[in-house]
Design a binder for these strands. Structure first.
Lengths: 205, 205
DNA sequence: GCCCCGACTGTACCGACGGTATGGTGCGAC
DNA sequence: GTCGCACCATACCGTCGGTACAGTCGGGGC
């Protein structure tokens, strides 16, 4: 009856878990609930995942991959629109802010922080993947900024790595503030502000 | 034997809970563990707190109070050191950054975000207190910035409320990044960067 | 001296949850 | 035809948050 063209139980579990974790947090997402939703039994869950940590791992992995694809898309497109790395980056940030207006919750930062704040629940592997994901952001934005700095020497002295980390911090923090204050535009506004800062740092005039 | 000048079981519970929550998160802090540490029984815990949410409430309240005292101390002292609101604010931010270098974990933002990411565990009261605490920060920094803007008209167009929220976002996000990457200076560096931004926005020349 | 009250203790129990164990089944590939 | 993947079924464990309720002990008021 219910086995039409099922996208495999594992996929269904991940899909359900993603939605639930974003809504209710990882600790608030029970295995029983997931298996009920996926129409399988608890044994089925533990066939696919050794434990809940392994589910978190798979979820994080998926998120980071999608995340990188999206960011690549945005900033590569921005690069096509403008030759100068600074202006391309500013366009990219604008696109990024626009994207964040639309999907304020569906973000890996959400997952990353959620896991970070309950990290005693998870094994080393999960924590390491989480750290690697964050380092990817540092590398990405650090790279953009260094490229910019070579063409446009900064008007004030700034630590470029810190300026790169600021994106991550604002996204993570913005998600928290958004959740607390229920102002969906907040995240986008912060990125826009960051954009203004970058402009101030590098733009001559 | 062990009842010397006991600071009341309730106080002991709060003290233990604070340490444990910061280390292991709220969900990772069990009531059994707390009562064992405080040398009382589970019944004793539920005598003082209706449930775990009420413990969170008390914890948050304590944190926000201390937090406000500390920030008042820093920025009032900064104000004594300089008459101009901009320079006083910049001094205050420097003091703030220095403070964050020392106590990177013992921060209410940590608690606030920890609760925010598991908010299905808590009742409305806790969530509202959490939101109020964040609004306090917005009001505080928004006030400083408006005062500054009256004396130093911004060189670029910025939303002052967003610029105020940026402090909260950077602190919350900085705590997450610090936890993930284990770089204790990260938070202070971000505040220092924010300071540079504020300077760029308002300083003539 | 008595009684009440606040601050607990002690015991027993509940349901939800993560997780383990173990054996069984349907079905497609080879 | 048999191998193994993708599950199912059942039963059970420890931990945790939480409930229920009776009992205890010391101090202050009367």
């Amino acid at each position: 009856m219910q086995q039409t063209m099922k996208p495999s139980a594992r996929e269904r579990l991940l899909e359900l878990a993603e939605v639930s974790v974003i809504q209710k947090g990882f600790a608030g997402t029970s295995i029983d609930e997931l298996v009920a939703g996926a129409g399988i039994t608890k044994s089925g869950f533990f066939y696919h995942f050794r434990d809940k940590s392994e589910l978190a791992l798979a979820l994080l992995q998926r998120h980071f991959e999608r995340d990188n694809e999206i960011l690549d898309g945005l900033f590569n497109r921005a690069r096509e629109l403008h030759d100068d790395p600074l202006h391309a980056f500013l366009i990219g940030l604008k696109l990024f802010a626009e994207m964040l207006t639309d999907l304020p919750e569906n973000h890996p930062g959400c997952l990353a922080a959620s896991i970070c704040y309950q990290d005693q629940l998870f094994n080393r592997e999960v924590r390491e993947l989480n750290a690697r994901g964050t380092l990817t952001w540092r590398t990405r934005f650090g790279g953009y900024l260094e490229e910019i700095a070579r063409v446009h020497p900064p008007r004030i002295e700034v630590d470029l790595q810190a300026l790169a980390d600021m994106v991550s911090a604002l996204v993570e923090g913005g998600i928290v503030l958004n959740k607390l204050l229920k102002e969906p535009k907040l995240l986008a506004t912060q990125i826009t502000l960051y954009r203004a800062f970058v402009q101030q740092v590098f733009a001559r005039d």
